Simulated scan of single mutants.
Amino acid sequence: MRARIAVLVMVGALVTSQSALAVRAADSEVVRIKDLGKLKGWRENSLVGYGIVAGLAGTGDSPSNKTTRQAMANVYSQFDLTVAPDQVQSRNVAVVMVSAMLPPFARPGDAIDVVVTSAGDARSLVGGNLLVTALKAPNGKIYALAQGSLSVGGYRYDMNGNVVQKNHPTAGSIPGGATVEVGVNAQMLTEEGTMTFLLANPDYTTAGRVAAEINRALGRPLAKARDAAGVDIRVPEFERDDLVTFVSRIEALSITPDQRAKVILDERTGTVVSGGNVRLSKVAISHGDLRISIVTDNQVSQPIFVRQGDGAGIRTEVVSNSSIDVRDGEASAFVMSEGSTVADLVQALTKIRTSTRDIISILRAIKTAGALHADLIIQ
């Protein structure tokens, strides 16, 4: 045990020195402002529509589905065909919901992807073709029209009660299946001539660094960190006519972002994820386990002299022999020096073949002891 601790201390010292170099290298890494967030107003818009998929091989909605029958009757009426809803008995059609995302700065004629999902009791949408469907935004206006053949990543076949199914055959997609009819223009600039850069991960230090780097590069105090999530940027009047060039200059700037220390524990899969510089205070760790093994061996006792006497009370008997083995595993004990990281701890525990779930238990205990200086997130 002493030899193991000595080896572990040597390994820990080596790992600590290597991690220190890695931390210094990480501190010098810079990230483009473009990769840290986006400008306010740069967002996608949700579109949704209600349509019909035709051409199914008997896998569509059942004739008892009143919604499908009414929808088909409405379609027929647009072509001067008068068919009562109760007379529609086809199983080759299905009612579906169609959804898409309208990107910012979309122009009329642009093609966008759509997702089609069954809204009735259809068994499969394989081989179906979506009829022209209007896609609306939450404001009720039509922004795109969708149609085309579905691409379904699954199938379902049934015969005589036997069913063979793969993935979800009641959902599919149409790449580029919608055409934008009404474009959108994201408003980045306010009436006061300012725009706001929003950080993907709000942080006061990072927001301050973004504002400072923009002011340094532009040579004037145009940027100011409003809070941990946003940086307000005032656009000079002579730059407003060429806003694209002004924004591209800002996006090309680089800073060193700051972030809160976090350790993610997933007990379901036994996964531990943490930053390489998550610090630990000086802490002593001792971890052992008690293993109890119970083995039961069932044997049959068969009488030998069955024919002697009248045989009354003579029968076969099952005998259970149980053995209990208790082993108190050798505890692993060591002391983490001050300034060590979670990466050092995990590597040290791995050297002594500690399981991932035991590592999770140790990290939770260290957090409870107040020696883990990071947010512990358990999933």
Rank of each mutant, 00 (worst) to 15 (best):
R43G: 12
N92I: 04
R69H: 08
S90I: 11
S64I: 05
A73H: 04
Q78N: 13
G60Y: 05
L47G: 06
N92H: 07
G60V: 02
P85C: 05
Q78G: 15
I52L: 15
L47M: 06
R91Q: 12
M101F: 11
N45D: 15
A73C: 08
Q89A: 13
E44G: 15
I52D: 07
D86L: 00
Y50R: 08
R69F: 06
S77H: 12
M101T: 15
N45K: 09
K66T: 13
D86W: 00
T59W: 07
N74P: 05
V88R: 01
D86T: 00
F79P: 13
N45F: 14
P63I: 09
A73L: 08
V83D: 01
L47T: 05
V88H: 03
Y76S: 01
T67G: 11
V83E: 04
E44W: 07
A100I: 02
V95N: 01
D86V: 00
M101N: 15
A57C: 10
S62D: 14
R69T: 13
M101H: 11
Q87L: 12
Y76A: 10
G58N: 05
V83P: 13
V93G: 01
G60D: 04
V83Q: 03
G49D: 11
S46C: 02
D61P: 08
V75E: 14
S62Q: 09
S62T: 14
A94E: 01
